[in-house]
Nucleic acid binder design. Structure first.
Lengths: 152, 152
DNA sequence: AGCCTAAGTTCGGTTTTGCAACTTAGCTTT
DNA sequence: AAAGCTAAGTTGCAAAACCGAACTTAGGCT
């Protein structure tokens, strides 16, 4: 889990670095959280996050550009048309990241006795965690993980 | 996976929000990546990330304060003492987040033919992925995940 | 015609970043 | 012992990102 191949690391080919260019700015991950929570509208984000309107407009624009989110126009009867932001497949696939962050936050940042929020399995009621596995869902121990460079 | 209990969400008790106060600033996740890659020294970070020295000093200070990282003094023979930053348990437990980000980056941001990097199981050589499970490592389908508020 | 509201823009001021130069303290070399 | 080298910061100033409040635009409602 601490990865020793120090010399042959090429920063431009690191998927974490690339990902953080889309996720790393302030507000982006919080906006994704709001979207997973089920909010979709500009005014919701602005009120819930207490973000300035100008920055919000910019971030949403960038997230649309990056393909995390798409902007839709919808209309409910006898209401004027409104805009809504919806996660794309690419955006939805960040749910794992959000759950991983949540799991960690829960372990280290929540005091006992306080109210908190967890993700649970609707059927069993059991708490969800992210686990290291291979593509067949067989558990992998983090001790045995190493980094490999390859041609895609 | 899209979570509908919109009304009863209290933003101050959300573990994602709390976590992002420690992780959400620019550079922090990249610094964690460097630490997982096995780098520990100020000069390494500065050169590898191309971050300004003043900001680097601040971020490292904050990460020490937050308990993600600890600063150690070490000395190799006939060298002067040097400083090294090492992940704490709390910091190491962010490895899941890094792997989740990496998995996503790999799926969406790497072009075919380009060089990239993946986490693999040392034994089987198989690629590592993060999976939704319960605490007994039984797979959970993301469709069935919902959010629960409770008293810790 | 006038009002209301969602979704932005604009603008001035404050915070973060970035960049380059300077500082400090051990160790080594002369 | 003086001079030099290097790791790990500081400092100071310019550039970029962010904030808050006010302003704009457009569709629907009274």
């Amino acid at each position: 889990m601490e990865l020793p191949q120090n010399e042959l690391i090429n920063r431009t080919s690191c998927p974490v670095g690339k990902a953080l260019q889309e996720l790393g700015e302030k507000w982006v991950l919080l906006l994704l959280r709001e979207l997973f929570y089920g909010f979709h509208r500009f005014e919701d984000f602005q009120q819930n996050l207490d973000i300035s309107r100008s920055v919000l407009a910019n971030k949403l624009g960038k997230m649309v550009e990056d393909g995390l989110v798409e902007k839709r126009l919808y209309q409910r009867e006898s209401e004027r048309p409104r805009h809504a932001y919806h996660l794309t497949k690419k955006g939805k696939d960040l749910f794992k990241v959000i759950v991983a962050i949540s799991e960690w936050g829960n372990r280290y940042l929540d005091k006992d006795g306080e109210e908190t929020m967890v993700f649970v399995d609707a059927e069993s009621g059991k708490q969800v965690q992210m686990s290291y596995t291979d593509s067949d869902f067989q558990p992998i121990h983090p001790r045995n993980i190493l980094l490999k460079t390859y041609q895609k």
